[in-house]
Design a protein around this nucleic acid. Structure first.
Length: 381
DNA sequence: AGCGATGATTTTAC
DNA sequence: GTAAAATCATCGCT
């Protein structure tokens, strides 16, 4: 409801009114009763322009000092708008109001006036905010969309995202049993998030379309009593959609956050780290200390070690990476361990050759690379 | 709880 | 891309 409704109501049978008179029910009635001839359209428009400067409240106060705004035909409620044509007669609306409304709807100048007024509206009020009309796809919402798609929250049901995540986690390591348990848990939680997301999205879409329909019905209804161009309706719908899309973005944002938290809880291997078992550590250490001069196992050697230890190749790589740096950083600390494994290796070798004189030597000659532990090839510590 | 050990990840350098 | 180095997060012992 706005000035336009009141304008049109006040315009019926306008003739010879001064600007001060416009909108004054008494003066309108006066003019109507006098039955003055139709005034020139230019004058009417001029008066309309003057009226638009008034605020709704003051105009209404002048027009209907004793009534509440809800009695207006142009109310926000479309159902009321529907009744206003006559159903309300005797139900609260004053008869002169009904009379004027009827007069307006039947007036031969109505279509022409409406079209002119629509044009004026287009050129004034709407053009002000019509500048940034066309909305380019929001990069933020696109980012969120992509992420939700990648995580398997939005998009097709088959859950490709969670499968991919599971595969990624499997590649990261962990025993197969452990990870499969973790994954089913993860998938269940992800499915939960997915479900909530979709039901919320549905609610949102429903609310959006309901509200859009509501507003469109309202505007269509009102377009019978005030000038509303289709373009204006279109614009209103666009505004509504923009408002709702900001809500949608919030939903997507919080869904993304939930997925991120879930991921970090379930798929960050650091959080469920298990120390390798003793036997695995032994195998790795044996290799490390027996190849101290060049502790860089080849791909094949890594695979072999991984198989022996029941861990993945990348875990073997991690282990060697950690071991090299930590050994180098503090050789003293690892001295004991180094000697232990050197003896171990030597004993194994001795079992084959029974050569006691070289028993304490590392299996591989130490030719640069990493500093040897504090022992000599001849067995002195 | 505190703390060192340790596996994983990230950053940096080549 | 790989390895070193730095860092993180958890484990496991006291």
């Amino acid at each position: 409801m706005d000035d336009q409704t009141r304008m049109m109501t006040g315009l019926t049978g306008l003739g010879g009114l001064t600007q001060g008179d416009v909108g004054d029910p008494d003066s309108v009635r006066k003019q109507q009763s006098l039955g003055q001839p139709q005034q020139d359209i230019g004058d009417i428009l001029q008066q309309i322009m003057a009226i638009t400067d008034e605020s709704l409240d003051e105009a209404q106060a002048r027009c209907w000092p004793e009534e509440s705004p809800a009695h207006w035909g142009g109310s926000d409620d479309p159902t009321e708008g529907g009744r206003a044509g006559g159903g309300m007669a005797g139900g609260g609306l004053p008869l002169n109001f009904q009379h004027r409304k009827h007069a307006l709807n039947c007036h031969r100048m109505k279509p022409a006036l409406f079209s002119v007024l629509c044009e004026i509206k287009e050129k004034t009020v709407l053009s002000i905010r019509g500048v940034q009309e066309e909305d380019p796809p929001d990069p933020q919402i696109m980012r969120l969309d992509n992420m939700l798609l990648a995580e398997g929250v939005s998009g097709p049901e088959k859950g490709g995202g969670s499968a991919a995540a599971a595969a990624a986690a499997a590649a990261a390591g962990g025993s197969p049993t452990d990870s499969s348990i973790e994954h089913s848990d993860y998938r269940a939680k992800l499915a939960q998030i997915r479900q909530i997301y979709h039901s919320e999205l549905e609610k949102y879409e429903q609310a959006c379309s309901e509200f859009t329909n509501h507003v469109m019905n309202l505007l269509r209804e009102q377009s019978r009593t005030r000038p509303i161009s289709p373009k204006e309706i279109e614009r209103m719908v666009a505004i509504i959609h923009r408002k709702f899309s900001s809500i949608q973005m919030q939903l997507k944002q919080s869904t993304c956050e939930a997925v991120m938290i879930l991921r970090s809880r379930f798929l960050d291997a650091r959080r469920k780290r298990r120390n390798f078992n003793k036997q695995a550590t032994e195998v790795l250490n044996e290799y490390f200390y027996s190849h101290l001069s060049n502790p860089y196992p080849s791909e094949e050697a890594k695979e072999e070690l991984a198989k022996k230890c029941g861990i993945t190749v990348s875990q073997v790589s991690n282990w060697f990476g950690n071991k090299r740096i930590r050994y180098k950083k503090n050789i003293g600390k690892f001295q004991e361990e180094a000697n232990l494994y050197a003896v171990k290796t030597a004993v194994d070798a001795a079992n084959v050759s029974a050569q006691a004189s070289q028993a304490n030597s590392p299996a591989t000659p130490n030719s640069g690379g990493y500093p040897a532990p504090c022992y000599t090839p001849d067995g002195r510590l």
